[in-house]
Design a protein around this nucleic acid. Structure first.
Length: 284
DNA sequence: ATAAGGCCCTGACCGC
DNA sequence: TGCGGTCAGGGCCTTA
């Protein structure tokens, strides 16, 4: 599940391979990956374009092109990108090949086929509704409070809502709530400014640390887990404190980590460190 | 306006 | 070994 840290590492790794390169053609073997355009139109529109940069917004990758348009990509669950020589045999589940002008190829592999490519003149058509970038100056504890103080929805669900804040997914939502000592089911409206200060700090710490550690690689399957374009796995999973640690002792207090469903997503937390009423919090 | 549930996908994993 | 069932899950769509 590539989230902000995994996408950021992907964007950084790809930059030296893509910036300044010209696209010679594109093949798409599973057309539903393309939002609102056919493989033929996709190929025709990309052919001859130069890639200006590699950027990120939330969990989206952005490739600005020399004609002012942008190629956007969301990896969703199992999407992977990397650059390889054209002659290298194509792996299973590889659905998109983009030929570069140096004999190499940008390859997209996605076992579950949930990913989406967009080709747009105005990137705001796709990105416009996203909330603030959590690591930027446009995001503050007051902003967070403003986004959630009128919501009865569980705070976990609000963190997953990309319109509240962009880039957080299931892994980092659980880890941030744990570090902030906030129960995932607490309605947004019950969070105080103090809570928001802690949650804001946790979110930023977790994401910055996860970026430094190369993201999180979960599970053994190289097909479904995360891997950077340079082939390296993430290391941040070694620092997870609750995510997929159901039944294990909480690293802070030793209580047993619990798993529940929140907004249809598995949610892991420590019932002692993250009390539902928000009081007697040992982390305070 | 908000929220819940279904859907897309396939591989991993579990019990028998 | 084979088989059926369940789980994983981001975002979009429909329904309430």
């Amino acid at each position: 599940m590539p989230e902000l840290p995994e996408v950021e590492n992907t964007v950084r790794d790809l930059r030296p391979h893509l910036v300044g390169r010209r696209i010679e053609g594109a093949q798409v073997f599973w057309s539903r990956l393309l939002h609102d355009l056919s493989p033929e139109v996709f190929d025709a529109a990309l052919r001859g374009r130069q890639i200006i940069n590699t950027e990120r917004r939330g969990k989206f990758l952005i490739f600005p092109l020399d004609d002012g348009s942008s190629l956007l990509l969301h990896l969703r669950m199992t999407g992977k990108l990397w650059v390889e020589d054209r002659q290298t045999p194509v792996d299973k589940h590889t659905h998109v090949l983009i030929d570069l002008d140096n004999g190499r190829q940008l390859r997209y592999q996605d076992v579950r086929k949930f990913g989406r490519f967009y080709l747009v003149q105005d990137r705001d058509v796709v990105l416009g509704k996203l909330g603030p970038e959590p690591l930027s100056d446009e995001f503050s504890p007051i902003d967070l409070l403003g986004m959630i103080q009128h919501r009865t929805t569980a705070i976990k669900a609000l963190l997953l809502d990309q319109q509240v804040v962009a880039g957080i997914g299931n892994v980092y939502a659980d880890e941030a709530l744990f570090r902030a000592g906030i129960h995932p089911l607490r309605p947004g409206v019950t969070l105080t400014l103090t809570d928001c200060n802690r949650l804001y700090a946790s979110v930023r710490q977790i994401l910055a640390e996860a970026i430094r550690e190369g993201g999180s690689t979960l599970g053994q399957s190289t097909l479904t887990n995360f891997r950077r374009p340079n082939g390296v796995q993430g290391r941040f999973q070694q620092r997870h404190q609750v995510y997929r640690l159901t039944g294990k002792p909480c690293p802070v207090c030793g209580a047993t980590v619990q798993k529940i469903k929140v907004a249809q997503r598995s949610t892991h937390f420590c019932p002692a460190c993250q009390p539902i009423d928000g009081f007697n919090n040992p982390l305070n």
